[in-house]
Design a protein around this nucleic acid. Structure first.
Lengths: 229, 229
DNA sequence: TTTATAAGTGTTAAATTAACATTTTTTTTA
DNA sequence: TAAAAAAAATGTTAATTTAACACTTATAAA
């Protein structure tokens, strides 16, 4: 019943973040070793509690920034996890967010006060509470999201090769893609700019670098954006 | 920081339900006239507060049942709404759920203690707080969900005609569909059973009734289910 | 100068989707 | 009792999209 706020139970509202990164050929998540009880020493998502003065997006941004030092990060609310005994200490509902990070740009600024480490998604340790469930749901959402937003670019450095982009999508979708079909699908989106510059790291011939054109994307995305790989 | 639960702020956690129904050619939502302050007399989604002893799904089910009398209803968590001043009385975060109701089966059992009424989605009154925003997001989710689950059947009576099913999808997607293409797409899903029986209400010729085959669906859906209308 | 390595590039068949009109059944009306 | 009216039932074809497929190019290293 809604007719008296006074008698209602209050709860702690946590925010946990699944932080995705991409490095070489692997989709990764950033985990921290928990330094307090319960479950001290176990691996965990980064998290914190909502404050009275902020909304959930702000809380997620603050928590991410505080534990990692990262700014201006793509984040999206995922789901509220609410099993009664999910946290043994106290009744806590956790709203999970996921974030996409360009690992290269951000690794040096990782806050060293916390014991944070990148793990391949399919090589990560068991996590505390219901955090594994959160990660599974985040991966599912990320897969779906690739079809509706150019989300991949959030995970790559400013300049990248077609091959890197393809490897990224292969990691997210967990399947091999055909090089020629991939390139023509990406090109038909018309949101990339091909640079003069080449990346010479991965081959003798070198491969052209591209960057994401924010303006072109915004122009397109209002009407339609659909990427089926 | 996570290292002391004690000092953290606690909040009220509400659950609000967007209850969808379908009647004739219209997608509808069930609203109640709020009978307490603030915003007494205004239209609102049905809602309530999470109790310490239940998770959010349980709370949503309980609240829906209490205010409407409905049982065994399809529900899905939508999103957590958390603007600091969304509820003027007290800091409240609301997790929205949406439910799909077969109006015919459920209208007589509507709990009369509350002033509840069905409104066409595009003819609904302005709602309190951020409830309009919740409804918009629910419609968007419902549209997306049609492609991945046979969600439409939740909104129809047990037996229905192809035309009713088509009208329903037209209402959800807000676009006209081609009759022949619609039927062949639905048939290719192979989850309907054509009955001998005809519905004689809408034409002289009568039109065959169908029902949804739960078993066939479950068999299919584990592998793949995709309906692009 | 040869070799090794990844980059770059188009075509075709297959599958899917979208567009489209006529016949059937039955009741009501003339 | 024949004609008209109204919605139901039913398939084909063109257009588009997707998937499958292999060879040449550029460059550095040996």
């Amino acid at each position: 019943m809604l007719n008296s706020y006074k008698t209602e139970d209050k709860v702690l509202l946590a925010v946990d973040c699944i932080i995705f990164g991409f490095d070489k050929d692997d989709l990764k998540i950033l985990l921290i070793k928990r330094d307090f009880e319960p479950e001290k020493g176990k691996w965990s998502l980064i998290g914190g509690f909502l404050k009275r003065s902020e909304n959930l997006n702000e809380a997620a941004t603050r928590i991410l920034n505080h534990l990692t030092g990262f700014h201006d990060i793509y984040m999206e609310q995922l789901y509220a996890f609410s099993e009664v005994d999910r946290d043994p200490v106290e009744r806590t509902i956790s709203v999970a967010y996921y974030a996409l990070i360009n690992v290269e740009n951000h690794t040096e600024e990782l806050n060293q006060d916390y014991d944070a480490k990148w793990f391949s998604v399919d090589n990560a340790p068991k996590l505390i509470f219901d955090h594994d469930q959160m990660v599974r749901r985040a991966i599912k959402r990320l897969r779906y999201r690739t079809a509706t937003k150019p989300i991949g670019f959030e995970l790559l450095p400013e300049k990248f090769t077609m091959r890197q982009l393809q490897k990224l999508y292969e990691a997210i979708l967990d399947k091999k893609l055909d090089k020629r079909n991939f390139i023509s699908k990406i090109n038909s989106l018309d949101v990339l700019v091909k640079l003069e510059e080449k990346d010479m790291m991965s081959s003798r011939k070198g491969s052209y670098l591209y960057k994401f054109d924010q303006e072109k994307y915004e122009e397109k995305s209002s009407q339609n954006f659909s990427l089926n790989l």
